[in-house]
């Protein structure tokens, strides 16, 4: 089940692909089949540019299964410049240096491994942009 689920999500995980409404231009991540703004069902795929700002965050010191080795790690809500919000890990930064409003960009990183012979899942994380406020 996990294999299929991860494969199904590859466009979102690797390329931050959502949808854009052909009628009103509203953008969605994850992709939606109906526009929540104008209720149109005419949408096409849209690749987000991966730039945004930290809306909120936390540092996890106790982790769910599969993430134990990563603690402490930062999970944030990233408000993309193009509209939608996405939950993701914030990487390449000391937890004490993360701030709400900080500029970030998407990078592709290893998320977790499912044991010795299992899947290795890659996905988006976000890192601070140098000199970004």
């Amino acid at each position: 089940m996990d294999l299929a689920r991860n494969w199904r999500l590859k466009d979102q995980r690797y390329r931050l692909e959502g949808t854009i409404c052909n009628k009103c231009g509203a953008k969605f991540f994850p992709p939606r089949g109906v526009c929540t703004e104008c209720k149109s069902r005419d949408l096409r795929a849209h690749e987000f540019d991966g730039h945004g700002a930290v809306y909120s965050f936390t540092t996890l010191t106790q982790a769910p299964m599969g993430f134990e080795a990563a603690v402490p790690y930062i999970v944030g809500m990233i408000k993309l410049d193009e509209g939608p919000m996405v939950e993701a890990q914030i990487t390449d930064v000391n937890p004490s240096a993360v701030k709400i409003g900080q500029r970030v960009e998407m990078v592709t990183r290893k998320l977790r491994e499912y044991g010795e012979a299992g899947l290795i899942v890659y996905a988006y994380k976000f890192r601070p942009i140098a000199n970004g406020n």
Partner: peptide, 13 residues
């Protein structure tokens, strides 16, 4: 389980 849990999130987070 597609977008929030896999990034290492859980309820306390």
């Amino acid at each position: 389980v597609s977008f929030d849990y896999p990034v290492g999130g859980f309820y306390s987070g």
